[in-house]
Simulated scan of single mutants.
Amino acid sequence: MTGLQAESNSHPPSNEDWKCQPPYRTTPGNSHFTKKWTAHCHCGRIKYWLSRPAPLASKFCHCIDCQALHGAPFQWAAIFEKTDLHFESGVEGLAFYHSSDKSTDHKLPCKVSCAYCHSPIMDEGRKMVLIFPGIIEFGDAEKKKLFDPQ
């Protein structure tokens, strides 16, 4: 066994329980999930649904991270509980970015995007998510008003 093999064998397995928790768990864990809103990334590979009829809050974020990562002076964000969100394919096709240490590990808080088209999907915290309403299928302007920033 080489030194590298011994080193890799000495590390405990990583904890991936988060993949089975909201918002990433898939059916049957979400068998009673009510779909109020549908959203998808630009290429359509990532699809998710929201069960809450309106966000807990909605805002324009002007933080330095949002400015740098979205290439804009602000980002429209809506706050939901993790249990309000359901990804069609769980973590499949998602990319994660932890800005504090510039790693691509799922380490909270983190930014979540489509691994293919790189559309921003959300910022994930410990209990809440900030989703980006620009990718939600609202249908009409009246429904979109539920997501107006406060």
Rank of each mutant, 00 (worst) to 15 (best):
F33N: 12
C43D: 12
K35R: 12
H98S: 08
F80G: 09
A77V: 07
C20D: 06
D105C: 11
C43R: 10
S51L: 04
T83N: 14
D65S: 00
G44T: 06
D101Y: 11
N30K: 12
C66W: 03
A72Q: 13
P55K: 11
L56Y: 06
H40Y: 04
K107W: 11
F74D: 01
F87H: 07
A95E: 11
P109Y: 02
C114I: 04
F87S: 05
K82Q: 15
S113D: 03
T38C: 09
C110Y: 10
H42C: 02
D17E: 12
G29A: 09
W18A: 06
D84F: 03
L94R: 06
D17K: 10
P23I: 14
C41E: 01
K47F: 04
S99V: 00
K47T: 05
G90E: 08
G90R: 14
C117R: 03
S31P: 05
T83D: 15
G71T: 03
A72K: 03
A68E: 03
A54H: 01
W76Q: 04
C117I: 13
P55C: 08
Q21E: 15
L56K: 13
N15C: 15
A78M: 04
C117G: 14
L69P: 00
A72W: 06
S113K: 00
T26G: 13
S89P: 00
W49C: 01
L50P: 00
S113T: 07
D105P: 06
A68L: 01
F33Q: 04
C43P: 11
A68R: 02
